[in-house]
């Protein structure tokens, strides 16, 4: 599998990652070689095998519907980059 630099830029946009102009070629070649490695999976016929999402094949535990958390906003917002009046802030989003 070989990627083109436009592919890398499209994926980088989906992942919201800025990639420096001069690093694009390196990423393109690194990602292509990783995908070549990954393509080895196709050496095996796995048709009919039930996918395994979680190693233990267990089922979900459920919690009771109870409020267990208290307000810790001040503590949590101490580590935030931009807060005002209890809100987190980001550059204006235009819808």
């Amino acid at each position: 599998m070989t990627l083109k630099s436009e592919d890398v830029l499209n994926i980088a946009h989906l992942a919201r990652l800025h990639i420096d102009e001069d690093a694009i070629d390196q990423y393109t070649s690194d990602l292509s070689s990783i995908l070549t490695l990954v393509d080895q999976m196709n050496q095996v016929d796995s048709s009919g095998v039930v996918p395994l999402a979680n190693p233990l094949d267990a089922t979900q535990r459920l919690r009771d519907d109870e409020v267990t958390e208290i307000d810790e906003r001040d503590k949590f917002q101490q580590i935030a980059p931009d807060v005002e009046a209890g809100f987190y802030r980001v550059p204006k989003v235009i819808e």
Partner: peptide, 18 residues
């Protein structure tokens, strides 16, 4: 994200996204 993550982390995020 681009400045905060290192090269290997970015590679893996990109491959995983793909």
């Amino acid at each position: 994200r681009g400045e905060g993550f290192g090269a290997e982390v970015k590679r893996r995020i990109l491959i995983g996204t793909y």
